[in-house]
């Protein structure tokens, strides 16, 4: 097990300089080493072929991987998909997948996780987290959990959040205020770390070589 892919791959693309190796480039850009990236490629292949075998993760395939149901829409999963899809073409390519997951690595710095979480909460991408966005997320969470809160309770918990996070008192939370807020409340980033990412080669022991695909896909 381990990096047999790398060895075969290095033979296949031996004429390339090391810095042109797409897996090596991803390893430099992310918290993953080359062996991790090979293991992630197995997961990517599985997800990207689960509905249409086209080497790209569609939103339906992402939902299928996440919830076991391709039709299960979820505001937060939508936001994560959109942030992973940095090329904004409606699908996640392998490089986007690896760079996105890197933020969730146990070794990724907390400010990086906080910045990603900020973008998740900034639904309309205004550069601020605003009250109506927080309300929308609360309503989505309640619906997902089949819970019912009165409007007064919702207003109360939004007020409390802004009381604690909106230090300037201008009714919106900017990235600096958010960084300070999560530093005081690290539990808010509980889902920004995926323990599985620490030991990927144990998770995906059996992978096959597909070097041409991985190279084309990253580029």
């Amino acid at each position: 097990m381990g990096c047999s892919f790398s060895k075969q791959r290095q033979r296949l693309i031996g004429h390339h300089k090391q810095e042109e190796d797409p897996a090596a480039v991803l390893a430099v850009q992310t918290c993953f080493d080359i062996c991790d990236i090979e293991a992630l490629y197995e997961l990517f292949k599985k997800l990207s072929s689960s509905i249409v075998d086209d080497g790209l993760i569609s939103k339906e395939e992402f939902q299928l991987g996440l919830f076991g149901n391709s039709k299960k829409r979820n505001l937060f999963a939508d936001r994560i998909f959109d942030l992973f899809d940095s090329g904004k073409d409606g699908v996640i390519e392998f490089g986007e997948f690896v760079r996105g997951l890197s933020v969730f690595h146990p070794a990724a710095p907390q400010p990086q996780k906080a910045a990603f979480a900020f973008r998740l909460h900034d639904i309309r991408q205004s550069g601020f987290i605003e009250r109506d966005e927080v309300r929308e997320m609360i309503v989505a969470l309640l619906s997902e959990s089949q819970l019912v809160f009165s409007d007064d309770i919702i207003q109360l918990i939004i007020d409390k959040a802004f009381q604690e996070a909106d230090l300037k008192g201008d009714g919106k939370i900017d990235p600096d205020e958010w960084q300070q807020f999560v530093a005081r409340n690290p539990s808010l980033l509980r889902n920004m770390t995926i323990p599985h990412l620490k030991d990927l080669n144990k998770e995906f022991r059996n992978f096959e070589l597909s070097p041409d695909f991985i190279e084309d896909d990253i580029r």
């Binding site: 997961l43 927080v134 997320m137 609360i138 997902e144």
Partner: peptide
């Protein structure tokens, strides 16, 4: 301390990517 809005939001299943690593 009581929960604020962001505590509650952080419990969404959609935020929990560990599902991608589990067999369905």
């Amino acid at each position: 301390a009581s929960l604020n809005a962001f505590d509650i939001i952080s419990f969404s299943k959609g935020f929990d990517l560990s599902g991608l690593f589990e067999e369905k």
